[in-house]
Design a protein around this nucleic acid. Structure first.
Length: 462
RNA sequence: UCCUCAGUAGCUCAAUGGCAGAGCACUCGGCUGUUAACCGAGGGGUUACUGGUUCGAGUCCAGUCUGGGGAGCCA
């Protein structure tokens, strides 16, 4: 059994030879005595054309009637077709049906809306677009591991179930074995979590960062790559309740090292996919986003922009008449401001650094000005924030002041504080939204279309 | 959660308050090199749901549900 990918990659090896292929019919056109089947076997983005003739097949009439989606086994000879649209085709000697596809098969050999395809998430990987998206997702995933492994980063599996609501970052999904119709309560009438499975309140993780820091302070350079959960009622094209995140963490590194790593990583993984999925990338460029390849080439070759929050505010304030929300130092940048920076001012990815401490998380390192923290966001055209990172606060007394100032309890962070107490050092890391990277890479504009079975508010059908 | 737009055949969409329509798909027939093949015929509807206005509602009004786009939160 051969694959269609082998035909396309080394056609010369197979010309004139009889080969077997199995796959699914994408289209079937025929006339009285001959017909053409577009076959896709999942090994490759493109299809191969099967020519079948009445005089060669005893089951010609049956084959001519087969619908889109039918699984078949084909034996035939690969021949060159220099004057046709396709480079070669299979002259069938026999075609056997493996699985029929009745006429109510929802996929047609024409364009469907992404909205409709989301309602048939189990069938949409059989379409061109989703075939390309999910092969790129796989390659991008591999490229990320390759990038970090080549640099001797240690891959750490941080927990999915967590006992800390660490960052206070958004709503969390609670994990419990309680019978929700009969929850144990204490004498004071509160929920008695001591009776729950873990003996405490637990949730699905919103970030592996705090755990990754512990391993960075042992292995120096580490990364996590796994699922993350946010129970926010976010209804946008860029948010999902379950998504994947890559979180590198480096000891003996500052914010500048962090940005260098982020830039190197983005360039490396994009370049890897461009080289290993040329057919898919060309498809995206032609049918999803016309300027895609040009923009990605620009990303791989250009230096990312860098600007401090304070400088960005100065620029944006001069253009305040263009914005619905006026910019003022101390407020967080709105989407419209971020897009203006990355799309109009820089026209390429840009790091914005050193945000006011009030609008950033407690673990970010306080700068010498006492007003800002060593944080960085990487903004990219079309998507917005794709990476958020920082140098971590490694001075225990400063960290404690921050924790208390935010009304949090030091004892809840006892092990995190231990990392500063015993051999603490400067360290930094960031979080890359994996799906946002895929969106940027493919031009797909909705996060629901780059996750195989997406989970969003009111939606977990598959 | 807020703002906004939409929901009509399997899909993509038309239809001035007055007979429910087209293209594609599907079924049947035809066709000797097709490329989302082509030609002919046919079947296919609780107009998202509930209520209201009206002689008459796909169309107007109210509510609900679902989806898209935008915002917030963020990755």
């Amino acid at each position: 059994m051969k694959t269609i990918k082998e035909m396309y990659r080394q056609p010369g090896e197979y010309f004139g030879k009889t080969i077997s292929l199995c796959g699914w019919i994408r289209s079937n056109r025929n006339s009285k005595a001959f017909g053409f089947i577009e076959l896709n076997d999942g090994s490759f983005f493109k299809n191969i054309q099967i020519v079948f003739e009445e005089e060669k097949l005893e089951n010609y009439k049956e084959i001519a009637r087969l619908g889109v989606g039918t699984a078949i086994l084909v034996k035939g000879v690969l021949v060159e077709t220099p004057n046709a649209k396709q480079p070669f085709e299979i002259k069938a000697e026999s075609i056997q049906v493996e699985g029929h596809s009745p006429s109510d098969y929802p996929l047609q050999k024409k364009r469907h809306s992404f909205e409709f395809l989301r309602t048939i998430a189990h069938l949409r990987p059989r379409t061109n677009t989703f075939s390309a998206v999910f092969r790129v997702r796989s390659l991008l995933s591999y490229a990320i591991h390759k990038f970090f492994q080549e640099r001797d980063f240690v891959y750490v599996h941080t927990p999915i179930i967590t006992g800390s609501d660490a960052e206070g970052a958004g709503e969390m999904f609670q994990v419990t074995t309680f019978d929700l119709k009969n929850v144990p309560v204490t004498e004071e009438g509160r929920i008695d979590y001591k009776e729950d499975f873990f003996g405490r309140e637990t949730n699905l993780t919103v970030s592996g960062q705090l755990n990754a820091e512990a391993y960075a302070l042992a292995f120096r350079n580490v990364y996590t790559f796994g699922p993350t959960f946010r129970a926010e009622n976010s209804n946008t094209a860029r948010h999902a309740a379950e998504f994947w995140m890559i979180e590198p963490e480096m000891a003996f590194a500052d914010l500048n090292d962090d940005m260098i790593l982020a830039e190197d990583m983005i360039k490396y993984i994009f370049d890897y996919v461009l080289q290993h999925a040329p057919e898919e990338m060309e498809f995206f460029n032609n049918y999803i986003d016309k300027g895609l390849l040009e923009r990605l080439d620009n990303v791989v070759q250009s230096e990312f922009g860098r600007i401090t929050y304070t400088e960005a505010v100065e620029i944006l304030k001069k253009n305040n008449d263009k914005f619905d929300y006026k910019v003022e130092w101390g407020t967080d940048l709105q989407t419209e401001h971020e897009r203006y920076l990355t799309e109009k001012i820089f026209n390429k990815p840009v790091f914005v650094t050193d945000y006011p401490k009030e609008i950033k998380a407690f673990y970010m390192r306080l700068n010498d000005d006492g007003k800002t923290v060593a944080a960085m966001d990487l903004l990219v055209p079309g998507i917005g924030e794709i990476i958020g990172g920082s140098q971590r606060e490694d001075r225990l007394d400063v960290l404690d002041t921050r924790i208390r100032g935010l009304g949090m309890r030091e004892e809840d962070y006892w092990w995190y504080r231990d990392l500063r107490k015993y051999g603490g050092t400067r360290h930094a890391g960031f979080g890359l939204g994996f799906e946002r990277a895929i969106m940027y890479m493919t031009g797909m504009s909705n996060i629901r279309d780059v996750i195989p079975f997406p989970r969003t508010p009111r939606s977990a059908e598959f």
